[in-house]
Design a protein around this nucleic acid. Sequence first.
DNA 1: GTAGGGTTAG
Length: 485
Amino acid sequence: MHSIGILANCYCHFGRVDFGFSLLGKRLKLGYFLDSVIFNTLINGYIHCDKLPQAAILLDQIVKLGFQPTIVTFGAMVKGLCKIGDNAAALRLLTKMRSGGHCKPNLVIYSTIIDSLCKDRLLKEGLDLFSTMKTQGIKPNVVTYTSLVRGFYNSGCPDQAKHLLTEMLENNITPDVNTYSMLVDMFCKDGDVDEAQVILQLMIERGVTPNIITYNALLDGYCLRGQIKDAKKLIDIMHQKGCEPNRVSFTTMVNGYCKVRNTDKALKIFHEMFQKGMTPDVVTYTTLIDGLCKASRLPLALNLFKEMQTHGVIPNVVTYSSLVDGLCRNAGLGEAVAILKDMEDKGVKPNTVTYNIIIDSLCEVGQLEDAAKFFSELISKGLQPDCKTYGILIKGFCKKGLMDEAIQLLRKMEEDSCSADDCVYNVIIRGYIHNDDLPNALHYSDVMVSNGFEADAHTFSLFVGLMCSGNLSESSKDLLQKFLE
DNA sequence: GTAGGGTTAG
């Protein structure tokens, strides 16, 4: 009975819930009773392959058969709700469990929702639930803390993340391999590979063995800094330690070579994957397609796009967006629009990033009206422009000297609770300088500084150039002198 | 035998 349960679980994790059901039949034939464990396995199987509605139907049928959902059933359903992004529904289910019923929420249920809230950057809500859980007498463990630390770090609150990590240690909760891997990953993404190395050493000293996730995070850290040699060395170390590089490791290397503009080496690694019996997935293909597009090797990229589909790998929104970018740059808007249509025909929905790519290309070549058309299309599709969308459009307006429009967008961007970053301010300031509007250039420099940013080298050199040009009135010169000082 | 935290692409 247990063997059949284990096998059913395996199939469910491979996305074959149908085989799970066959095994349920087998179990009955063998004369075993059905129990909640096998039902939970199937429900969880549906949730694993994003079929929450089917999971709910099955649960309903099970209840009609007279089985009570267990805490594990609730755990799976809560995860399912979080997975589709419905935190509110997950919280409602939690409340329902608390107020009535035989299953009170436990550590797993709370940790699942806290993790989901953190991933959606709802940090306050995450912390609130964390407090609630503690007041209910449920002690957080290493899983709960790891989710919180990662969430705060990824949302740009490193101090709070550090605070939570300290709190965890003070509560005598020992970091495990996932906690250390997260720290390695965070330092790498910050560009501090040395500190990541220190963490790796530390975990080994403390008897926690790094796994493939730890190594892959570090590998990516090297690749992000263009340290391909170090990345290669790490691959060797992984072999030595018996932690065989996997598809993600190879994809990371492909990306590393693409980012240092060595597409030949990237292609070589890609072919090695086949020799090693590893099948590239959609991420591998997309990485390479993007790299080839950026290296203006468009025919090769398009070939690969066909090849992936003959291998049964289905392009997703990232794949299409990479191609749209490549086509905009190398073949023109017409081709890009054609692929956009192909994408929608295949049922792949463009997202904000896809539109940002098109709008950026159009702004680059000065076709602001077309850019505005795509901006409206983005809105009409119910998508949200993000900070990048505004930044791209502002840059487009500045390039044409349409400063009033640029400032209008800056306001709209802030209304949309997107805060302008240093790039946006620098673009605006340079726009005013090019328009011979020094007072406004200086005004926005002040605004930028008061927001905690600085002029970049490009902007600064424009100011210096202006100072030396001799075209300034005495009063302007004074203003600029004061600013530069 | 069943539920929670993991690395890669635009």
